[in-house]
């Protein structure tokens, strides 16, 4: 457990240092929220109706940031070989790195979502729902991305490839994340239904993503 926490702490420290990308995701998220009204016009009624969609698309794209370096940096400088030889199973290594990635991308997005919701004229209930759905949904996005990162850790310029591999698999999370927000804004289904499925997706992808990424990393000699 101490090895796990040490790895999380190390990855967090690295991402906050110069050259790390801790704040990139949040800035990118803000850019998307800013750009969308320019594309569709400043109609507040329309914006508040599609705000969950904008926030979730922003979250999906922002999650991709930093994924290409999730394992690649460690594979290049030999840290991965040390980690493989250590006591912590490779699945534990993946889990720790995913946690650190989520703490610097998914969590800030969820926390900032109400603030960005204000810019999109969201109702308070919808803002809360957006923040909650992002809080429980973004880990799923990180875990799906981790599979792509694990498979391309030895490939140079794997960034676009990760996006191509991960985005189709992110569709279910996107569907239920937006559905949960829409339910809170007064839909035909209660908020709890899509929200519970979103939680289930995160748990399922925690398993699939950890196993898949670890299996991918084992293929690197």
């Amino acid at each position: 457990m101490s090895a796990f926490l040490a790895l999380v702490r190390r990855d967090l420290a690295l991402s906050f240092r110069i050259g790390g990308g801790a704040s990139f995701a949040l800035v990118f998220f803000l850019m998307i929220v800013t750009l969308t009204p320019f594309a569709i016009g400043p109609d507040l009624n329309l914006l508040s109706r599609i705000a969950p969609a904008i926030l979730w698309i922003g979250a999906v794209l922002a999650t991709l940031i930093g994924l290409d370096r999730l394992f690649q940096a460690d594979a290049e400088d030999g840290t991965l070989d040390v980690l493989k030889a250590g006591d912590l199973p490779l699945e534990g290594v993946v889990l720790a790195k995913c946690l650190a990635h989520w703490l610097t991308t998914g969590l800030p997005l969820a926390v900032a979502a109400p603030l960005f919701g204000l810019m999109l004229a969201m109702e308070p209930a919808a803002m809360l729902a957006a923040a909650l759905s992002l809080l429980v949904g973004t880990p799923a996005l990180t875990f799906i991305g981790a599979v792509g990162a694990g498979l391309t850790a030895s490939i140079r310029r794997g960034g676009v490839l990760i996006a191509i591999m991960a985005l189709p698999l992110m569709i279910p999370t996107l569907i239920f994340g937006v559905a949960a927000c829409n339910a809170a804004m007064g839909g035909t289904v209660p908020f709890a239904t899509p929200f519970a499925i979103l939680c289930a997706l995160t748990l399922a992808f925690a398993v699939i993503g950890t196993l898949g990424a670890a299996a991918g990393l084992r293929q690197i000699d």
Partner: peptide
Amino acid sequence: ILTLVGFVNIPIIKFSV
């Protein structure tokens, strides 16, 4: 590995869609 991950995902995607 990607094929297997995709295969596990297909029923999830089908259900979601």
